[in-house]
Computed example of a mutant assay.
Amino acid sequence: MSSEREPQEAERIERIAREAYERCHPDDTFDDLKRRAAFSREDQGLLRDWLEFAARQAADRRK
């Protein structure tokens, strides 16, 4: 992947994760999860899981 596409892909993955997370957690925001992940191992794992989910979704959409 070119270095120009990497930031765009990361933004796309985060956008997918944000939409899915906020749909499943209407009383929370993805930005709040990201802030909590800075000091909570549980939230770090949740953030990682949501980003992995979004990366799989992005890959499936490219097929």
Rank of each mutant, 00 (worst) to 15 (best):
E52K: 15
F39C: 06
D60G: 05
E52N: 13
Q57A: 15
F39Y: 13
R15E: 13
R35W: 04
I13P: 07
M1Y: 10
R15D: 12
R35F: 07
S2W: 05
R62S: 12
Q8A: 14
R62N: 09
R18H: 06
D60S: 12
R18W: 06
A38E: 13
A55Q: 11
D27Q: 09
A20P: 01
L46M: 13
L46H: 05
D60F: 02
R48W: 11
E11V: 06
H25A: 02
Y21D: 02
D28G: 03
L47V: 02
Y21M: 06
R18Y: 07
E9Q: 10
R41H: 11
P26T: 03
L33Y: 05
E9R: 15
R36E: 10
A37M: 03
D49Y: 12
S3Q: 08
F30S: 00
C24W: 10
L46N: 04
R36Q: 10
W50G: 01
F53A: 11
M1G: 15
I16L: 15
E42P: 00
A37K: 02
R15K: 14
A59Y: 00
A20F: 09
K34I: 06
D31R: 13
R56T: 04
D32V: 00
E11Y: 03
A59G: 02
C24P: 00
Y21W: 11
F30I: 01
L33E: 00
I13D: 08
P7M: 01
A20Y: 08
R56P: 00
D31T: 10
K63S: 10
E14A: 10
E42R: 13
R48Y: 11
R62G: 08
E22V: 02
E22K: 06
E9S: 07
E6W: 04
E52F: 08
P7W: 02
D60L: 11
I16C: 05
E19L: 14
E11R: 13
E4K: 14
A38G: 08
R56N: 12
C24M: 14
R18K: 15
R41T: 13
A55M: 02
R36A: 12
S3T: 14
R61W: 00
D32L: 10
R18F: 03
L51N: 05
S2C: 03
E22C: 07
S40N: 04
D49K: 14
R5G: 10
R36C: 08
D49Q: 14
E6Y: 09
E14R: 14
E4I: 09
Y21E: 01
R41K: 12
R35E: 14
L33D: 04
